[in-house]
Design a protein around this nucleic acid. Structure first.
Length: 943
RNA sequence: GCCUUGGUGGCGGAAUUGGUAGACGCGCUGGAUUCAAAAUCCAGUGACUUCGGUCGUGUGGGUUCGAUUCCCACCCAAGGUACCA
C-alpha cells in the first residue's frame, strides 16, 4: 500500500485544527512546560526555509514533552512592526497595515502546511492596537520609575518626589544623568513645576536626550548603519552625515550589573553568555579630570590604566566632543573644521573597523597634567567615538597600541611630543609595551618602582586624595535609543506641554497610529507622523483631535516619533500567557502559573539585541511587582542560521553588459545580486528570464563563456529578500510532504550550526519515511501482527529508544534521525511487523513526523491523537553485551581486532593479546616496552 | 578592527570522557528488475600503492603510549557590532 503523504497530511492538519489538539490550558494537574520560538517578522518574501528550522526543533521538543506528561504552552505570533513594510508603503502607497495583514496570512498558510503544534488561540501581533496598548503602558511605567542604587531596583517616581520634598537629592543614590546638580528640599520646593519636571526627567528610566544619528539630507530621514553602504545611503546612494537629535532613551545601563550577574543562573550557551558579557563590557579603572589650560573647562576621561598616568603624551577627543569648538585655537580652526566634516561622513562602524588609516588633527589647545602640571596637547581623532565612555581618552603610547600608532604617525608634527616611556626596561622601538605581572612602573614620581597592579591601586588613591579623579567601574553598555523617525511602529503615549513630555493616562490607551497621506518625513524634516492632520491630544475630552485645535491650553501636540522594533518583542512572551486580558498585560495568576519560558529557540543574530532588551524589561517589570521572575528565558538554544546561496551577475563598469563569472579576468566589474530562481544547479543563468526580471535589464548584453553559457558567481550569505536568495518551503511540502521537510531540515546538520540551504539529499529522508510506512503495510494494506517480536527486533527497538531519547534531550536531532534510519533498516531486514515493536516506534517518530505517526497510530486501532500517548520506556535487559571486539594497535596504529569477553581484567586481556599470533607477527621478535590496556576500549602495544 | 561560532571524503555531516576517523544520507560506479523509463532492491565507494603498506580531520608547531578532540601561533568563512529583523 502506497504512502499518500499529501492526503494524510491534509487530513491530520484538519483534525488538529478542528479538535484544538494543542490548545494549552492555564489550569492543569500536569507540570507546565513553556516552549517558545522567536516570533517572525512577516516579510513580503514569505516564510523561507530558514524560519522553520528553529520552529521544527521547538515543535519536536514540545511534542516530546507532551508525550512525557507535561502541560505544554507552545504559542506563535508576529513581530509585525518594522521597516520593510514601511519602505514598501513609501514605494507603493499601500498602507503597512494592509501589507502586514496579507503577509501574516501568507505566513500562516505556510506555517500550517508544516504541521506545527502551535496553540493558535494565543496568537499575538505587535502591531495590533490591543497588543501595543500594553507596550505603551510599559513605556509609561518606565517613565514613572527611577533606579535606586541603594535598594538595587526600580522604584516609583512618586517615591523620589517624596524624598526630594523631605531631603533634596543629596541623600539619593540613583542612576541619573551626569549633569544633575545638588539641591536641598527647600530648593526643590522653590523650583517651578517645569524645573521640577526637567530634573525628574534626568532620573526617569526613560528620558529625553541628545543622541547621534545617521542623517541623510536628501532622503530627509535617519538611517540604520545597515542601510549605509560605503558611506552613502543604500537607497539612492546619497551622502549620510552624523547629526544630533533629541530622542527618547532607555536607562538600560542602570541594569548593567544585574544583566551581567543574571547570566549565571540561566541555561544558555557559554558563547552566548560571553557575547552578552562582552557587550555589557564591565571594566574597572578610574575617571580622571584634566583641566584645560587657560579655560574654565575640564576633560573627563575613563581609563583602565590610571597607573600609566605619567605616560600621558597627548589627549584625544572625539571630533564630536562638545569642547572641540571652544578650545580650538584660531590657527588650527580650519584644519579642525575640515576634519570634523570628514569624520561626520564616516559611520561609526567604519570608524571602528578601519584601524589602518590613522587620522587626526591637533586643536592647538593643551590640558594640564593632574600631577606634573605640565601641558598635554589635545588632539581630535575619529578612533575615539563620541558615544563611548566620555568621548575622550588620555593617550599613553608606551602602553596602548592605538595610541602608539597615532603618536608614531604624527611624530615630529606640531603638538606631538616624544613618546613618554614609563615602563622599566620596555622596548618601544616596534610597538607598545604589553603589561605582564613582571611589569614595573618607572619615571613616575610616587609610582616609580611599583609593580603595575600596585601602582594601579596607589594612583587611584592619589587621584581621590587630590580630588582629580576617582576609582570607577565602567560599562560599555550604552543607554538604548528608543525613538525612531518612522511611521510603522508604536506611537508614544506622550504629548508636550511647554516642551515638557506628559504621559497620557493608561485608561485612554491605546493611542492608535494616525492615518497619513505620505509615509515619508515632512518637508520640515519632522518624522512621518508629522504628516497627520489628526495628531494632537485634548486633555479635556481625552482623545486624539485635529492639529488645528492645538491651543497649548487644553490641546497639545503629540509625540511624532514612534517606538523601535524591539519594543514589542521585549515582553511578548508574557502576553502569550494571557493573550486576551483587557485589564492587564498579563494577569498575576497566569504569569505565576507559566512563570517564564522553559525553552526558547531562535537565531544567534539576536544574541545582544533582543535578548538583552527582553531581559532588561523583565527585570524592570519584576522590580515594580508586575511579574514574579527575574529572567524571561530559562534555557535558550540558538539555531544556526540557514544561509542562502546568493547568485551574482557581473556588470562591466559603466555599461549595461554582463560578463560570465569565468570570463571576468581583469575586467572591472560590479557584482549584482540576481534572483536564485533564475539560475539552475549548474550556475547557469536563464538569460530570457533575467531580461524580463527587471525593466533595467531589458536590453542587457552578455559576454558568454566558450560553451555559450552565462555562469553566475555564488556566495553564501544570510537569506534575505534584498539578496534575492530566499527559498520558500511550500514546494517541498507539495513535492515530498511536511514530514519529509521536517525531518530533512533536522537531518541537515547540528541545530546550532549555520549551514547553507541545499535540497540535494532530501530524497534519502523521503525514502526513509516510505520504508517506515512499509513496515506497517504490505501490498494489500495494513499488515501488523500480534505475535511476539524477535529478540533482535526488541534489541533494535530499545537501542533506538535509548539513543533517540538521549539525542532529543540534548537537541541532537540530526543524529536522532540517523538512528531512526538505522532502526528502520534493521527492522526491514528482520522483516519485523509485530505490534510490540511498531506501536512504540510510531510514538517515537511522532514528534519528528507527526502526520505519518498519527495515521499509523489510527491504523493500529487507536481513536485518540498519538500526541496523547505516553513515551515508550527504555528497557536495559534487551541490550546486554558480553563481548567486545578490541582494536589492537601498535604505536597507536590499529593492526587487527580480536573479540574478547567484557568481564576480563587488564592482566587477562594483555595475556590473551600477547599470545595472539598476529601480535607476535607484528613484533617480529621484539619485546614491547609497554602495553596499555583500556578495558572495554582498546589495547595499544608500544615498542 | 573587535566579539562569537565554524573549517573532517565529490557534498551535508558522525565520532559520549583523549581510544578502530568517515556512522547516517546524498552523489557516483557496477549489477538485478523493466520493452524502456521512473521507482525499488543488491554490491562497491577518502587518497595513493610496488598490495607489504603509506598518507589523511584548514596551516605550522607542541603535549601524549595514543589527538578531529587538549595547548600555542596563524589562515579562511559566517553572524553580530547598538536605527534590518
Amino acid at each position: 500500500m502506497k504512502y499518500h503523504f499529501n492526503k494524510i497530511e491534509a487530513q491530520w492538519q484538519k483534525y488538529w485544527a478542528e479538535n484544538q489538539t494543542f490548545r494549552a490550558s492555564n489550569d492543569s494537574d500536569k507540570p507546565k512546560y513553556y516552549v517558545l520560538d522567536m516570533f517572525p517578522y512577516p516579510s513580503g518574501a514569505g516564510l523561507h526555509v530558514g524560519h522553520p528550522l528553529g520552529y521544527i526543533a521547538s515543535d519536536i521538543y514540545a511534542r516530546y514533552k507532551r508525550h512525557k506528561g507535561f502541560n505544554v504552552l507552545h504559542p506563535q505570533g508576529y513581530d509585525s512592526f518594522g521597516l520593510p513594510a514601511e519602505q514598501y508603503a513609501i514605494q507603493t502607497g499601500q498602507h503597512p497595515a494592509v501589507t502586514t495583514k496579507e503577509n501574516i496570512e501568507r505566513y500562516r498558510e505556510q506555517l500550517d502546511k508544516i504541521g506545527f503544534s502551535f496553540d493558535w488561540s494565543r496568537e499575538v501581533r505587535t502591531s495590533d492596537p490591543d497588543y501595543y496598548r500594553w507596550t505603551q503602558w510599559i513605556f509609561i511605567q518606565l517613565f514613572d520609575s527611577w533606579y535606586d542604587n541603594k535598594q538595587d531596583k526600580a522604584r516609583p517616581i512618586s517615591d523620589l518626589i517624596e524624598i526630594f520634598n523631605t531631603s533634596g537629592n543629596t541623600t539619593v543614590d540613583a542612576v541619573c544623568d551626569s549633569d544633575v546638580e545638588a539641591f536641598s528640599s527647600e530648593q526643590w520646593k522653590s523650583f517651578s513645576e517645569k524645573e521640577q519636571q526637567a530634573i525628574l526627567l534626568k532620573y526617569r528610566l526613560t528620558y529625553l536626550a541628545e543622541t547621534e544619528v545617521n542623517w541623510c539630507p536628501q532622503l530627509g530621514t535617519v538611517l540604520a548603519n545597515d542601510e549605509i553602504v560605503n558611506g552613502v545611503s543604500e537607497r539612492g546612494g546619497f551622502p549620510v552625515i552624523r547629526k544630533k537629535m533629541t530622542q527618547w532613551s532607555m536607562r538600560i545601563s542602570a541594569y548593567a550589573e544585574r544583566l551581567l550577574q543574571g547570566l549565571q543562573q540561566i541555561d544558555w550557551s557559554d558563547s552566548l553568555k560571553e557575547s552578552q558579557r562582552n557587550w555589557i563590557g564591565k571594566s574597572r579603572g578610574a575617571m580622571v579630570t584634566f583641566q584645560v589650560k587657560d579655560y574654565d573647562h575640564t576633560i573627563e576621561v575613563f581609563t583602565t590604566r590610571p597607573d600609566t598616568i605619567f605616560g600621558v603624551t597627548f589627549m584625544t577627543l572625539a571630533p564630536e566632543h562638545e569642547l572641540v569648538d571652544i578650545i580650538t585655537t584660531p590657527q588650527r580652526k580650519k584644519a579642525v573644521e575640515d576634519y570634523k566634516k570628514a569624520a561626520a561622513q564616516r559611520s561609526e562602524r567604519e570608524r571602528m573597523a578601519d584601524v589602518k588609516t590613522i587620522s587626526g588633527v591637533f586643536t592647538g589647545a593643551y590640558a594640564i597634567h593632574p600631577f606634573t602640571k605640565e601641558p598635554v596637547p589635545i588632539w581630535i581623532g575619529d578612533y575615539v567615538l563620541a558615544g563611548y565612555g566620555t568621548g575622550a581618552v588620555m593617550a599613553v603610547p608606551c602602553g596602548d597600541q592605538r595610541d602608539y600608532d597615532f603618536a608614531r604617525h604624527f611624530a615630529g608634527e606640531p603638538g606631538m611630543p616624544k613618546i613618554k616611556n614609563i615602563f622599566r626596561d620596555a622596548d618601544l622601538s616596534q610597538s607598545a609595551h604589553v603589561s605582564t605581572p613582571q611589569t614595573h612602573i618607572d619615571h613616575s614620581d610616587f609610582l616609580t618602582g611599583l609593580p603595575w597592579k600596585e601602582a594601579l591601586r596607589v594612583s587611584i588613591q592619589k587621584l581621590e586624595e587630590t580630588n582629580q579623579g576617582y576609582g570607577k567601574i565602567n560599562y560599555r553598555l550604552r543607554d538604548a535609543v528608543f525613538s525612531r523617525q518612522r511611521y510603522w511602529g508604536e506611537p508614544f503615549p506622550v504629548y508636550y506641554v511647554d516642551g515638557m513630555p506628559q504621559m497620557i493616562a493608561q485608561e485612554h490607551l491605546p493611542i492608535r497610529l494616525p492615518q497619513v497621506e505620505k509615509y515619508l518625513p515632512t518637508e520640515q524634516g519632522d518624522p512621518p507622523l508629522g504628516n497627520s492632520s489628526m495628531w494632537a491630544w485634548d486633555t479635556k475630552r481625552n482623545e486624539v483631535v485635529a492639529n488645528q485645535e492645538i491651543d497649548h491650553q487644553t490641546v497639545f501636540p503629540l509625540e511624532l516619533n514612534t517606538m523601535p522594533g524591539w519594543a514589542g518583542s521585549s515582553w511578548y512572551f508574557f502576553r502569550y500567557m494571557d493573550p486576551h486580558n483587557e485589564k492587564e498585560f498579563v494577569s498575576k495568576e497566569s504569569q505565576a502559573y507559566w512563570e517564564n519560558v522553559d525553552l526558547y529557540i531562535g537565531g544567534s543574530e539576536h544574541a545582544t539585541g533582543h535578548l538583552l532588551y527582553a531581559r532588561f524589561w523583565t527585570k524592570f517589570l519584576k522590580d515594580r511587582g508586575w511579574v514574579s521572575v527575574e529572567e524571561p528565558f530559562k534555557k535558550l538554544i540558538n539555531q544556526g542560521m540557514i544561509l542562502g546561496n546568493s547568485a551574482f551577475v557581473y556588470r562591466l563598469e559603466g555599461q549595461n553588459t554582463f560578463i560570465s563569472h569565468n570570463k571576468i579576468g581583469d575586467h572591472r566589474v560590479q557584482p549584482i545580486h540576481v534572483d536564485v530562481s533564475l539560475v539552475n544547479t549548474s550556475n547557469e543563468l536563464d538569460l530570457e528570464a533575467f531580461r524580463n526580471w527587471r525593466a533595467e535589464y531589458k536590453d542587457a548584453n552578455f559576454i558568454l563563456d566558450d560553451q555559450g553559457r552565462y555562469l553566475v558567481g555564488r556566495e553564501v550569505e544570510k537569506m534575505s529578500k534584498s539578496k534575492y536568495n530566499v527559498v520558500n518551503p511550500d514546494d517541498i511540502c507539495q513535492q515530498y510532504g511536511a514530514d519529509t521537510l521536517r525531518m530533512y531540515e533536522m537531518f541537515l546538520g547540528p541545530l546550532e550550526q549555520a549551514k547553507p540551504w541545499n535540497t540535494a539529499g532530501i530524497s534519502g529522508v523521503h525514502a526513509f519515511l516510505k520504508k517506515l510506512w512499509n513496515l506497517y503495510h504490505n501490498d494489500e494494506g495494513f499488515f501488523v501482527s500480534e505475535e511476539k517480536a524477535s529478540q533482535d527486533s526488541l534489541r533494535t527497538l530499545h537501542k533506538t529508544i535509548k539513543k533517540v531519547t538521549e539525542d532529543i534531550e540534548n537537541f541532537h536531532f540530526n543524529t536522532a534521525i540517523s538512528t531512526f534510519m538505522i532502526c528502520v533498516n534493521e527492522l526491514s531486514a528482520q522483516k519485523c511487523n509485530q505490534r510490540e515493536v511498531l506501536e512504540p516506534l510510531a510514538i517515537l517518530v511522532a514528534p519528528y513526523a507527526p502526520h505519518i505517526a498519527e495515521e499509523l497510530w489510527k491504523q493500529l486501532g487507536h481513536h485518540q491523537s498519538v500526541s496523547e500517548a505516553p513515551y515508550p520506556e527504555f528497557e536495559q535487559e534487551h541490550l546486554v553485551e558480553s563481548q567486545k571486539e578490541y582494536p589492537i594497535s601498535f604505536n597507536g596504529k590499529v593492526r587487527f581486532t580480536m573479540t574478547l569477553p567484557l568481564n576480563l581484567n587488564k592482566e587477562e586481556i594483555e595475556k590473551q593479546v600477547m599470545q595472539h599470533e598476529k601480535t607476535q607477527k607484528q613484533l617480529e621478535g621484539r619485546s614491547p616496552k609497554k602495553v596499555i590496556v583500556v578495558p572495554g576500549r582498546i589495547v595499544n602495544i608500544v615498542g
